[in-house]
């Protein structure tokens, strides 16, 4: 087991290096370099940089050196925790992103838990009541959940909130807590606002997982070992939860790997609609204003989270199903 974890960890390192290269290329893709636009922007607001300042900025990002050297410098700074400066905000990227990343992570994790808590019992119910009316209803809503784009669901919820509750369902905090330091009251306020993004983000994944759970369990329910357990006189409930459900659970674990990245990805769009103080809106505005250091840091960190998510799911899977370790 330890060997397996070590091997997986070792693969992660070149992966992260590769992603940093891709991210760097993406940062460089838009025409013109960011410093030129930064200086132009400053000049348009009346702030003229003198030559020494420009030179020091160019030096800071190594803009005069060849591309590979620029990359290495960026990469080296990043390892040391320096993500550069956001031109748009005129602040170090570090100051801008961590709280947003933490909130993104909280939302994603809460959505993941919500997805499981909802999908598992419904999937089991749907499988044990195959072809019943309730099964069809669940299937119908499952397909509907997969077909509605996340951001539209968010819009609809906000619209309903505006029409019937008279309040905007967007945001993560009430006005009075927005700037307030963290306290129990603020956490409570966060929890009160969290359900909208969780439902919006969780719906399509929940629908998918219900489907997977149902199909897996249906495969298992007709296997001979279930019959054996039944002939031994175990109650139906006990048979169900002790054997087939446990086996059908495997995909739940293996999906952690792709659920986390899709959640983080999906949160990007949904949080723009719901104006959540997470990574999404900041990433979008950074991209639109070509604030490439900020955007690059986000892509880099989100990718890292994705890889870590896959790593966790691989390890969990190997822990549950020993056959995987042997490969």
């Amino acid at each position: 087991m330890l060997k397996f974890i070590l091997r997986r960890l070792l693969i992660t390192i070149p992966m992260l290096f590769g992603i940093s290269i891709v991210t760097f290329v993406l940062i460089q893709l838009p025409p013109g370099d960011f410093l030129t636009s930064y200086i132009a922007e400053l000049e348009s607001t009346g702030h003229v940089l003198d030559d020494a300042e420009i030179a020091s900025l160019r030096n800071r990002y190594g803009l005069d050196s060849p591309l590979y050297a620029q990359f290495l410098k960026w990469f080296w700074n990043m390892i040391q925790g320096d993500f550069g400066v956001s031109f748009q905000w005129n602040k170090p990227v570090n100051e801008l992103i961590w709280e947003r990343l933490a909130l993104t992570f909280i939302i994603s994790l809460a959505t993941l838990i919500f997805t499981w808590v909802v999908a598992l019992p419904i999937g089991v119910y749907s499988a044990t009541h195959q072809y019943a009316v309730s099964d069809y209803v669940i299937t119908f809503f499952g397909f509907l959940g997969r077909g509605i784009p996340d951001f539209m669901l968010a819009l609809i919820l906000m619209w309903i909130g505006l029409i019937y509750l008279g309040t905007s369902a967007g945001g993560l905090f009430s006005l009075e807590y927005k700037q307030a330091p963290w306290s129990f009251a603020k956490v409570w306020d966060l929890l009160k606002h969290l359900w909208v993004p969780i439902i919006v983000l969780g719906t399509s994944n929940t629908a998918g997982l219900i489907r997977i759970m149902r199909n897996n369990l249906l495969d298992e329910l007709h296997k001979p070992y279930v019959e054996t357990a039944r002939s031994k006189g175990l109650t139906e409930q006990r048979i169900l939860w002790k054997y087939p459900v446990r086996i059908a659970l495997n995909p739940f674990v293996s999906t952690v790997g792709w659920v986390l990245p899709t959640l983080i990805s999906g949160a990007t769009i949904v949080s723009v609609v719901l104006s959540l103080p997470t990574t999404g809106p900041l990433l979008l505005s950074a991209l639109l204003s070509q604030d490439m250091y900020l955007a690059g840091s986000f892509v880099m960190i989100l990718s890292t989270l994705t890889i870590l998510g896959t790593l966790v799911s691989d390890i969990l899977l190997a822990w549950i199903d020993p056959r995987i370790r042997m490969e």
């Binding site: 990805s265 990007t268 892509v299």
Partner: peptide, 15 residues
Amino acid sequence: RSIPSIPLWLTLSAA
């Protein structure tokens, strides 16, 4: 596949 698709798409489209 390990790069989160939507941030990647956003970055590419912004370019």
